[in-house]
Write a protein that binds this DNA or RNA. Structure first.
Ligand SMILES: [Zn+2]
Length: 423
DNA sequence: GCTGCCGGGTA
DNA sequence: TACCCGGCAGC
């Protein structure tokens, strides 16, 4: 926090932003690779940082991306000029806006760009999780962790489901607009592959300084003002300061760990979410949530599913075409058969109004019944008192009557659980 | 007694 | 696998 504060001080005490950021941005990252190699070879202090080759590559690409982003953002800079006072206010406003936005998933939305380049900092928000935005960043990037770690894009967007479709092709249209998807795909292939436990800081390489800031802009400003003595023109960057700082990676596993430990265990995440992702949990059994589930409720998850499948097999005829699923078609994230499956389990399972999370405690009678059934297999009807409480609605028999028996659903005709009028 | 449907039987 | 039905239990 301290470093951020300081950095923001540096950023916003700057005399002016009259020199537009496009100029600064345009040659701000002219030598990312050169600087990289330079600092790597030259500075012995760097040995203290754990930097393997791969990370270095990632970093370079990341820097390149920053550059590209900044350059592109400079194109969007509105041409309007303002008085210095207005600009000062703008800076403050921009700071607040950016601070708030940097914690939201929409941080990459286009309208932010001009301010982004205007303030000169936070531009790495899309590429590097800055410490100040960590909470927001982690919080919404965690759900998409199953499919791809550290996707810096909204959680439920197409990105999360991309692995489900053919990986070679970009999704045609998944609800986010085409251009955005394209820019996502094109702009950030590397960061999404990176482990999201890495946080990038920028360390001043000036002799006896070693100051560490969380943003490139901050460290540049630091170098410019402190070491290069460019006080009056603090915002102007000729790229020289690039040679005096380096990027370091900190492992913020603690954050990710906390989240990951929270995610599988918390009922709201892994247990209550099945309505949204019923299939991925069972089909993609390697998701951490599912695995933890099976680990936590071993007796149930080991027994119940088998029973479920037995029941299901027994009632396989219930999957007749004219099934009407009341009010379910809402959650078909990418057109797969999600909606059907989350209605079906309660039906084939017990016929109870059981919530789709079949190991949720309130699932009561049916659940227990399944349980006792499998555990005490010898007494066929051991727990008689635990019979399920009979469905509420009228079924085919009552609706059509005995005389219209041919209009019943097959299940009803066979005296099985009705599948047309599901409770 | 009607109804829903589980468990089990038959072809 | 498709179909049927005895019988239990909720209403
Ligand atoms: Zn029916």
């Amino acid at each position: 926090v301290g470093s951020i504060k300081r950095e923001m001080t540096f950023t916003f005490q700057a005399e002016d932003l009259k020199r537009d950021s496009s100029k600064k941005a345009s040659h701000h990252y002219l030598f990312p690779l050169a600087m990289e190699e330079d600092t790597k070879a030259g500075d012995a202090r760097k040995a203290s940082w754990v930097l393997d080759h791969e990370k270095e590559n990632t970093r370079s690409v990341c820097l390149l991306e920053q550059k590209r982003k900044v350059v592109s953002s400079s194109i969007d800079v509105p041409p309007a000029r303002k008085s210095p006072e207005e600009l000062d206010m703008d800076k403050v406003t921009a700071a607040m806006v950016l601070t708030s936005l940097s914690t939201s998933p929409l941080v990459r939305s286009p309208p932010v760009r001009p301010h982004d380049s205007l303030s000169g900092s936070w531009k790495e928000a899309g590429c590097v999780p800055s410490s100040s935005s960590s909470s927001g960043y982690w919080s919404w990037s965690a759900p998409s962790d199953q499919s791809n770690p550290s996707t810096p894009s909204p959680p439920l967007s197409a990105d999360s489901f991309k692995p489900l479709r053919s990986p070679a092709q970009p999704p045609p249209d998944d609800g986010i607009d085409e251009a955005d998807a394209g820019s996502l795909l094109f702009d950030e292939p590397i960061p999404r592959k990176r482990k999201n436990s890495m946080k990038v800081m920028f360390k001043c390489l000036w002799k006896n300084c070693g100051k560490v800031l969380s943003t490139a802009a901050g460290i540049q400003k630091h170098i410019r003002t402190i070491h290069l003595g460019r006080v009056g023109d603090s915002d102007y960057s000729d790229g020289e300061e690039d040679f005096y700082y380096t990027e370091i990676k900190l492992n913020t596993d603690s954050v990710a760990e906390g989240l990951s430990s929270l995610a599988p265990g918390s009922p709201s995440q892994s247990l209550a979410s099945p309505p949204t992702f019923p299939i991925p949990d069972s089909s993609r059994a390697e998701t951490p949530g599912a695995r933890t589930d099976s680990k936590l409720v071993t007796p149930l998850s080991r027994s119940a599913p088998t029973t479920l499948y037995l029941v299901h097999a027994d009632h396989a005829y219930q999957a007749t075409p004219p099934v009407t699923i009341p009010g379910s078609a809402k959650f078909t994230p990418n057109g797969s058969s999600f909606s059907i499956s989350w209605q079906s389990p309660p039906v084939t399972f017990t016929g109870l109004p059981v919530s789709p999370t079949h190991h949720h405690p309130p699932a009561g009678a049916g659940e227990q019944r399944q349980h006792t059934h499998t555990v005490l297999s010898s007494p066929p009807r051991g727990a008689v008192g635990l019979r399920k409480p009979r469905g509420e609605g009228k079924k085919c028999r009552k609706v059509y009557g005995m005389e219209n028996r041919d209009m019943w659903c097959t299940a009803c005709r066979w005296k099985k659980a009705c599948q047309r009028f599901v409770d």
